[in-house]
C-alpha cells in the first residue's frame, strides 16, 4: 500500500506533535530574516499552527514535515492471503473460477462466487477468461476498528489492438512455416 503525505490536515493532537518539532529554532545566518514584533504569521500547517505570539527575530527553519502515519487517518488493509484467478463460467447469480495461491504457486482451487462480489463498475469485465486478483485480509478503519475483508478486483488488461493481433498472426505463420504445415 502506498502512503501519501499530500493534503492531509492534521488534527489538533497531531499539530501539537508538529509544533514540538518546530522547535528548537535553528539559526542560519544566510536565511535569517527580521520579522516585525507582534506580527502574526502562518506556517505551512495553516490555521492550525497560527501563532499569536510575538514573532521571533529570526524565522525558524522548519525541518521536513513528518506527517502522522496514514493508518491513523485512512483505512488500511493487511493481506493475509492472495490469489490470482481466471473466470471459467458466468451464470445468472454466480460465477466460477480457478484461483491459484499467489505464494504457494501451483496450488489451484475451483471456486464459485456470488456475482455480488464484483462491483457494478467491473461487471462488464466479468467474462470467461477474465483475470482477477482476490485478497482476504484485515481492514483497519481510522477509528481503529478492524474487520475481516475480501477484495476481488478484475484486472483491466489493455485491449487488443491491430498491432498485437498482427503480431500473433505473424508468430502463427512463422511456426506454421517451420513445421511445413
Amino acid at each position: 500500500m502506498s502512503h501519501s503525505s499530500a493534503a492531509v490536515t492534521p488534527r489538533p493532537k497531531d499539530t501539537a506533535v508538529l509544533e514540538e518539532r518546530i522547535t528548537p529554532v535553528v539559526k542560519i545566518p544566510s536565511m535569517a530574516r527580521k520579522w516585525p514584533a507582534g506580527e502574526t504569521y502562518e506556517t505551512q500547517l495553516g490555521n492550525a499552527c497560527r501563532s499569536e505570539t510575538p514573532m521571533p527575530n529570526t524565522l525558524p527553519v522548519v525541518p521536513p514535515k513528518k506527517l502522522p502515519e496514514r493508518s491513523r487517518i485512512q483505512p488500511s488493509f493487511v493481506a493475509l492471503q492472495k490469489w490470482e484467478g481466471r473466470v471459467l463460467e458466468v451464470g445468472d447469480s454466480t460465477f466460477s473460477a480457478v484461483v491459484e495461491d499467489s505464494v504457494r504457486r501451483g496450488v489451484e482451487e475451483e471456486v464459485e462466487f456470488d456475482l455480488e462480489e464484483i462491483g457494478p463498475d467491473d461487471r462488464n469485465l466479468l467474462k470467461p477468461g477474465a483475470i482477477f486478483y482476490w485478497t482476504i485480509g484485515y481492514r483497519t478503519e481510522p477509528s481503529g476498528e478492524r474487520s475481516r475483508s475480501s477484495v476481488l478486483v478484475l484486472r483491466r488488461l489493455p485491449a487488443w489492438n491491430e498491432e498485437g493481433l498482427q503480431r500473433a498472426r505473424r508468430l502463427a505463420e512463422e511456426l506454421r512455416k517451420r513445421f511445413d504445415w
Binding site: E108, E109, E110, V111, F113, I136
Partner: peptide
C-alpha cells in the same frame, strides 16, 4: 481467519491440485 472469510465469500470450492 482466512478460512472463515473464504467460507463466507465462496459458495463452493474444490481443490484441483
Amino acid at each position: 481467519t482466512v478460512d472463515k472469510t473464504f467460507r463466507e465469500v465462496v459458495r463452493r470450492s474444490e481443490l484441483l491440485s
